[in-house]
Design a protein around this nucleic acid. Sequence first.
DNA 1: ACCATTGTATTAGATGCTTAGTACAATAAT
DNA 2: ATTATTGTACTAAGCATCTAATACAATGGT
Lengths: 121, 121
Amino acid sequence: MDWQFDNERPIYTQLVEQIERAVVTGKYPPGERLPGVRELAADAGVNPNTMQRALAELEGTGLLFTQRTSGRFVTQDAEKIRALRVMLAQQMAGDFIRNMRALGCTPDEITQYIQRAKEEE
Amino acid sequence: MDWQFDNERPIYTQLVEQIERAVVTGKYPPGERLPGVRELAADAGVNPNTMQRALAELEGTGLLFTQRTSGRFVTQDAEKIRALRVMLAQQMAGDFIRNMRALGCTPDEITQYIQRAKEEE
DNA sequence: ACCATTGTATTAGATGCTTAGTACAATAAT
DNA sequence: ATTATTGTACTAAGCATCTAATACAATGGT
C-alpha cells in the first residue's frame, strides 16, 4: 500500500481516508484480516498511536471490527461497503460542485474543467 | 462576507482560500481597498493575528499589496486574477478526478455523480 | 502639530497532533 | 504451562495553531 500524506490535515484523518479507499476498492475484501497496528504503522511510516487512532475511528463507523487478540478485520457486510463508496463519491462530487460554484464557475465551465482533467490523467 | 470554517484544516489556510475566492469572483475588484486587519478579523470571528497571517500569505503571492498606513489593496493586475481563478479551478478539477479514481470510479461513473450533484444544488 | 488609523511585532498561554517509549491484558500457538 | 502476538493505555516531550493582550512605526486627515 502506498501511503501518501500532505501536511494540510491531521495524519490520522488521512489514514482513515486511505484505509477506507483500500476497503471500498476491494484491496481488503469483506472479512479479511488487516495487518497489525504496528505493522501498518511501520508501513505507513507513522507512529503506532497515530495508526491506532485511525483504526479506532474506522471501528466506530463499523467498517472494521476487532477480535481482541487475533487482529482487526474488515466488516463482512458487503452492502455496507458499497454504500460507503457511494456516500464518499457523492460527498466528493457535492463538495466539488459547491467549490467550483464558489469560484464563480457556470455548469458548462465545470464540465469543461472536468473534461480537461480527465484527459490529462 | 459570510465566513465559514471547518476544523479539519488551519483557519489561516481557509481564510486565504476564502479571500482568494472573494477576489477572483470580483467581490473585491482590482485595486480596491480591503477592510483593515482588525475589521476583517472581527467580521470573520478570528483573532487579528490569524487574519494577519492569511493576508501576509496573500501578499506573498502578489494578490494583495500593502500601503503602509492606508491599508491593503487588491492587485491592479486583472490578468493575474483571471489566471489565479483558472489555476484554482484546474487544481480542484484535477484533485477531484484523482480522488474519484482512487475510489475506483470510471470516467462514466464520475460523469454521473457530477450530473447528480449539479441537479441537487 | 496632533491624533486616529493603518500594518506589524512580540510575548504568553491553551489546545491538538505526533512521536517515543513503556507497559498491560487477552489469547492463539507451541 | 509458556510464549509470542494481538489490541490497548499511559506519560512525556516537541511542535504548530490559535487566541489574547500589548506595543510600536508610519501617515493621512484634521
